[in-house]
């Protein structure tokens, strides 16, 4: 991979740091009048998700990281690995639990998801911001009770549990915001 100097650090650039692939979020040039210039850089470790700030001497460089975001179709899980396929090449990739992370509870078979590949293997999986999933278990719905607040837990086909309004019943398909894990609306029946 190419090397990148501090003055080429841009938001979104992927670099190797301490052996881990990282994404640059922010880069600030600082200089004390006379003397050494520095770059104060905010980064996200793409393996651990940790966001932190590191300072470099201006002009230092880092090796680029072989990191790519690819849209793939989620196939299935065997409990240990999660399998994804590139729609153009039909090439399959398996991701372990660490890579799938929180996205695991929102994965729906045959749906597209963003898989981040590092040196060709899945590093992380991002669920779409919104998913539509069927409720397989919840307390019986209270008919007509649409105005009142209050909620109850509902279990979805993926195993995720979200809070839904009291009027929602088992077997319904709901729209969920995966970033907050919150119920958004009933999905329109097609």
């Amino acid at each position: 991979m190419a090397n990148y100097s501090t003055n080429e650090f841009r938001s979104g650039l992927k670099v190797m740091l301490d052996g881990d692939p990282c994404s640059i979020l922010d880069n600030e040039f600082v200089k004390p009048g006379k003397g050494q210039a520095f770059n104060r850089v905010r980064l996200r470790n793409l393996k651990t998700g940790r966001v932190w700030e590191r300072t470099f001497k201006s002009g230092e460089s880092l090796e680029g990281a072989d990191v790519m975001d690819v849209t793939m179709e989620y196939l299935y899980t065997d409990g240990e690995f999660w399998f994804f396929m590139e729609p153009n090449t039909f090439e399959q990739h398996q991701a372990d639990e660490a890579a799938v992370g929180e996205a695991r509870q929102w994965l729906k078979e045959q749906e597209p998801v963003e898989v981040t590949l590092y040196n060709g293997t899945p590093l992380s999986v991002s669920a779409p911001n919104f998913v539509e999933l069927e409720i397989i278990e919840t307390d019986p719905g209270l008919k007509g009770d649409t105005a009142q607040g209050g909620s109850k837990p509902a279990k979805l086909t993926t195993g995720a549990v979200v809070k839904v309004p009291l009027f929602i019943s088992q077997g319904e398909v709901i729209r969920v915001d995966t970033r907050s894990g919150e119920y958004v609306a009933r999905a329109s029946k097609s």
Binding site: L17, K31, G35, Q36, W52, E53, R54
Partner: peptide, 18 residues
């Protein structure tokens, strides 16, 4: 967090200043 940064006296002074 300076990673593996190395340098002389003035480098550290400049870093503390900024």
């Amino acid at each position: 967090d300076t990673g593996g940064m190395t340098g002389g006296r003035d480098l550290w002074l400049d870093l503390l200043m900024t």
